[in-house]
Write a protein that binds this DNA or RNA. Sequence first.
DNA 1: TATGAATGAGTTTTCATTCAT
DNA 2: AATGAATGAAAACTCATTCAT
Lengths: 211, 211, 211, 211
Amino acid sequence: MTPTLTSREATGERREERILRAALTEFGRRGFAAAREGMIARLAGVSTATLKQHFPTKEALFREMVRSMVVRTLHQVEPDAAAGLAAESAVRRLREFARWFWQTMDEPEYAALLRLSMVELTRFPELAVFHATEVTGRALRQLERTLADGVAQGEFRIGNTRAAARVILAALITHAHWFAHPEIFSGITGVDRAAAEESVMRVLVEGLRGR
Amino acid sequence: MTPTLTSREATGERREERILRAALTEFGRRGFAAAREGMIARLAGVSTATLKQHFPTKEALFREMVRSMVVRTLHQVEPDAAAGLAAESAVRRLREFARWFWQTMDEPEYAALLRLSMVELTRFPELAVFHATEVTGRALRQLERTLADGVAQGEFRIGNTRAAARVILAALITHAHWFAHPEIFSGITGVDRAAAEESVMRVLVEGLRGR
Amino acid sequence: MTPTLTSREATGERREERILRAALTEFGRRGFAAAREGMIARLAGVSTATLKQHFPTKEALFREMVRSMVVRTLHQVEPDAAAGLAAESAVRRLREFARWFWQTMDEPEYAALLRLSMVELTRFPELAVFHATEVTGRALRQLERTLADGVAQGEFRIGNTRAAARVILAALITHAHWFAHPEIFSGITGVDRAAAEESVMRVLVEGLRGR
Amino acid sequence: MTPTLTSREATGERREERILRAALTEFGRRGFAAAREGMIARLAGVSTATLKQHFPTKEALFREMVRSMVVRTLHQVEPDAAAGLAAESAVRRLREFARWFWQTMDEPEYAALLRLSMVELTRFPELAVFHATEVTGRALRQLERTLADGVAQGEFRIGNTRAAARVILAALITHAHWFAHPEIFSGITGVDRAAAEESVMRVLVEGLRGR
DNA sequence: TATGAATGAGTTTTCATTCAT
DNA sequence: AATGAATGAAAACTCATTCAT
């Protein structure tokens, strides 16, 4: 009754998907140059020749992988993030956003994409633009909306919501990086993942002047 | 009395210096895996064989490069940055710090080191620790001092100066990354480098609550 | 009564014909080794798998192609060439032959076959023999007949008609090659295709002694 | 006393020469596409990597090979061909030329170059031009000189010495090809290598009209 | 010590051929 | 019988590292 998994279309899809996922793993681990197509093929459970039939060059594979993975992995999650929160206090929504953002960036796949978007930026500028648009841009817009709501509700007093959104996102991004590598940074920043949401938000909301 | 510059030791030093500088350029451009020792040798004006005589493996070269470059390029600058500013207003000092930090990260060499510290983190964790200690750690301490002074002078009201310092540095780092690649990010963040110091500082100092 | 063209056999034939023609094109362009079966399949408008079903190996395809193309393309034309000229002057008939030969070798298909017969001679000696028999041999016999007629008619005085036929054909073949690649040879040989028939014939008929 | 063969310069030269010679052998045997660089390396007694250090791509190797081999192999011989014959009878000189030409084209190296100049003509047109200029062009000029001398001495009566030279060379070239592959052609052309010089020359000198 | 040259050990890439539907 | 997909086998190519002078 279950449709055969080996039907042409089904396997085809499955295969490309598996290959792209494997590519993300290997590229994420090693970066573009050091990644080996042979390893990607093995991770995907196909021969190298099959891999090359679907993605003729290493570069094509990388491009496709970023394109599809950014779409596949990020879009399905983000819209939910602020769902049902429109009526909430803006501070609460910011907190939720931070929590969602850090949680998301904790997934190996997202982390790998983030890392690659920085690492291979010089070699693949249009992909960097794509990633920046899809991820940074969306996050900024989301944040700005929340801030504007907060201003409208009298919760915040900020002239430049865009600049504020940038500062928030910037702080979150670097923290995500620190969290992703506690073995490197926890000793230096003394950052406490658990308390971070609270403390970062307090600083951002109150500012250095306090109250 | 003046040591001859052509004495074995002296030229050796000169050579190694040139090689290490070339290595930073090439590794910074391409990352560890894609960098070619041949290119480094050419940039340094020596043969590949000579390069290998000084630094027997690619890894050794990379390690030495990071170690020496972090020390050479960062230490000589940072301590001066806030010198003579102890008496200044803390806000003013933060602004100066931001300006210095972004200016410094604008230099290709520093930017390359920052990028490598993120990119090659997995392959060379102890170097990442080294860099994090020498750069992130120092910057955090500097910032925390300034914040504490601000609190002492009644300028700031912050309970957790360490957390505040982290938020500031985190925001500055991501902005530095955005500034370093305007072709990617300026369209997305709409970030105006000239106005950034002012607007970022305002958000951080005032917070989202304002006043 | 007329067999349906879509009957298995008929379409099969059509397909094979299209494939063989495509094979001649691709093999002619690239030679045996560099030719790709995939390209032949595409030129013939079938899948590679279908191609392989008709001609299981590259070699088999090549052999079949040469065999059938030599027969298909050369035989239908040559016999007619000198038809009805038996009564003509032998010089006139030689001229006609040259014209026909060069015209024929101008067709891409014939030129390709000629080229392949030289190029792949080592790899497929029996095909080279086949081609030599069917083309060179026939042409030689034709020429020798004409020469013999010329001698009989008192037009020519040659002891060794076979040797003479060889010299004529040899000259025609190389000229055909020069004509086929004017971009290479026209500057070097200064050969004028239009005047060639006249000047070559004059030399051959008169000889170097003249008159 | 003998200079060391392993001195840098000496081996370098020797090596490249050996590689180029090996390349001629392999390319000549198989054509460009089917030739394997690994085989060339083995024939030359070096590793594939060494081969690639001297000639980075298969194409570069092929180009260099043709360029240097045409020069090396043809130039050293041809000038001698007509040496001391200026005073001879023109017929005699033509006969000498034919003998020299066929002998030369009998050497595997020359034969290979001739074959390649036809085979790879489409892929490397500028090499074909080079070869045509250096070989066909030179031969034509040499022949034309001889013919002009013959006319001046009253031995020949030809209006168009250039056309005559072309016809002669054309006949010689195809004959050379036939001689090079007796297993293919001897049965078909009935060509007798030993008698060829005599019979071909007679036809060319006397023409079909005789006397 | 400096270096031109050589190479081992991989990696990418290509393609005829096979498999499964 | 026709074909999309998969792959084994072979080749090109790259580069860190070693060797010999």
